[in-house]
Design a protein around this nucleic acid. Structure first.
Lengths: 125, 125
DNA sequence: ATAACTGTGCTAATTGTAATATCACAGTTG
DNA sequence: CAACTGTGATATTACAATTAGCACAGTTAT
């Protein structure tokens, strides 16, 4: 579990955690039924309060991405292969591109930007 | 001035206002030295406190997008033709696309999304 | 000069939410 | 039983967004 948190970011920590875990699953670092580090363990490791972690994991659970068993731990759901993690991101991209269009951005500019990201070894955050 | 505010949005009202004004300038609805409606007028029209509006306009001013004259009003700067309004949006798109890439999205999917937005008559927000 | 506008500056109160700090409880495992 | 797990509730702190209200100064027309 390699979770990077920007403590000075505008986006809440629990949102960052949710995203990082989704990314880990997408990358295959976390697979079905894999057990996550315990909340207290993560809390110590990341210096984040257990309540904040709990919130993130609870929301992931209500999204069906993880499941938890009291006394045992938190695990990755096994129906994530069919899951579309990109849905939200695509929605966000869509909104941004619409704004860019309204601001006069040319389609080629945006395409070029995307090609650069996919061709280049640009670090993903 | 056709400003749409989502009062239940997570993004602050003053941010939405800034964006709407930038859009209006981009679209050519607001041109150099055009006078904006007065703060009190906007406040009444949008049911938004004058302080919130003031914050938005002050930030736009420090970005050089507008200028204000005490007693007269707030006006659109005249160096906006050379301005790159898309900069922030491009930054945002870049981050989103990087996330999408990390989540396994294919380049073609994103390109296709963009083409659809530019070809279609999709409404921009 | 006065009235009616304009933007500006300030303080205060309210609200919502993120984050932390504790504590207690219940299930699991050795 | 001991040591771990997640869960739940409460209280508190901190910060940011928003609103309210007031006072002040510049502009403009009458």
């Amino acid at each position: 579990m390699n979770i990077l948190i920007d403590y000075h970011s505008r986006t809440p920590i629990y949102e960052q955690i949710k995203k990082e875990i989704k990314l880990a699953i997408s990358r295959g670092e976390l697979r079905a039924d894999d057990q996550l580090p315990s909340l207290r363990q993560l809390s110590a490791q990341l210096s984040i309060n257990i309540n904040t972690l709990k919130r993130a994991l609870s929301e992931l659970e209500s999204e069906g991405i993880t499941y938890s068993i009291a006394g045992k731990g938190i695990f990755v759901s096994n129906d994530n292969s069919a899951r579309d993690f990109c849905k939200d991101v695509f929605e966000e991209i869509s909104n941004c591109v619409k704004s860019a269009k309204a601001m006069g951005a040319k389609e080629e500019q945006i395409i070029e930007l995307i090609e650069k990201i996919y061709k280049g070894d640009e670090k993903g955050d």
